[in-house]
């Protein structure tokens, strides 16, 4: 199986915007092979030496695309994702925050009828230290190695990654699946990727209140994951029915709570921490350098 995240031909949609420009520079600095970018009406321009096209189709006339990273603003993000799906881009990573839910329903239906995989939206993207930086996860705080991190939260991803790096524990994958209600890849797909990669020797899963994704992840861990899993669920003291930052972080039923999710993960065999620092500590304690 080819690993989508190790694809070499990367494009940036929305490359001429402020975020697109800044992050293109950072991705190039981390060694990502960005072959082109798009912004409708801006063909012929260059951003950090990367050629800008009007559309993905125009790029595909001469080059093959393996990954697209999207920084297009929320009102136009649906169109950008649909364009990437229509162009059969294998891996689409959407960083954009604040996309309307109904737009994501349309995207989700198009995804089901395609072979494309979506990560995000409202995601920091993915970082494979030394291999690929696909999004906004700061490469300077990472270290190449064999751990794999998956999270719904950007800052907790960075925090965990930096904590592991400080203790000399490197990472093969650092992936943010995004904080929205309707999203692409979930924990399960990431766990599957990690479990099937012989280089990965430990998995760190960070979850939060709201939804059932972590409960489903627990069921998958129990059934199919043999790599050790370390987990932390944030929002233990969240009031019910109130949105905490992320669109998806609303505590509805009891089974969406941090306690219920921690319990399910524990029963599935994961090592569950009750705070962030404990999480990094238990990973470090069981790692033999």
């Amino acid at each position: 199986m080819t690993n989508l995240f190790e694809g070499k031909n990367v494009i940036v949609q929305g490359i001429t915007g402020a975020h697109g420009r800044f992050q293109t520079k950072a991705m190039l600095a981390a060694g990502t092979n960005i072959i082109a970018g798009t912004t409708p009406g801006k063909a012929g321009q260059e951003v950090e030496g990367v050629k800008v096209y009007d559309s993905i189709k125009d790029i595909q006339e001469t080059q093959q695309i393996e990954i697209s990273v999207i920084f297009v603003p929320a009102p136009y993000a649906k169109g950008a994702i649909l364009e990437a799906i229509a162009a059969n881009v294998p891996l689409i990573i959407c960083i954009t925050e604040g996309i309307p839910i109904h737009d994501m329903l349309v995207v989700n239906n198009a995804l089901k009828a395609s072979n494309s995989v979506l990560l995000g939206p409202n995601s920091p993207g993915a970082l494979l230290p030394g291999i690929n930086k696909l999004g906004i996860i700061p490469a300077s705080m990472s270290l190449k190695g064999n751990a794999a991190i998956v999270s719904r939260s950007g800052t907790l991803t960075y925090e965990t990654m930096a904590g592991l790096t400080d203790r000399g524990i490197g990472q093969k994958y650092v992936i943010g699946i995004g904080g929205d209600i309707i999203h692409g890849m979930g924990y399960k797909e990431c766990l599957e990727l990690f479990e099937n990669d012989p280089e990965v020797n430990q998995i760190v899963l960070i979850g939060e209140i709201g939804g059932q994704d972590e409960i489903e992840a627990a069921a998958y861990i129990k059934q199919s994951v043999t790599t050790p899993v370390y987990a932390y669920i944030t929002g233990h003291h969240a009031p019910a029915g109130v949105q905490l930052g992320h669109a998806g972080a609303i505590l509805g039923n009891d089974n969406e709570s941090a306690a219920a999710k921690s319990q399910a993960l524990g029963e599935a065999g994961a090592h569950v921490a009750s705070t962030m620092s404990e999480l990094v500590q238990i990973v470090a304690n069981t790692t033999t350098p």
Binding site: R152, S153, T155, T234, G235, T275
Partner: peptide, 16 residues
Amino acid sequence: ANGAGLAMATVDAAYE
């Protein structure tokens, strides 16, 4: 705190 996740985690840790 900055970031929804870190803000929740900070509240958790303060309670702890």
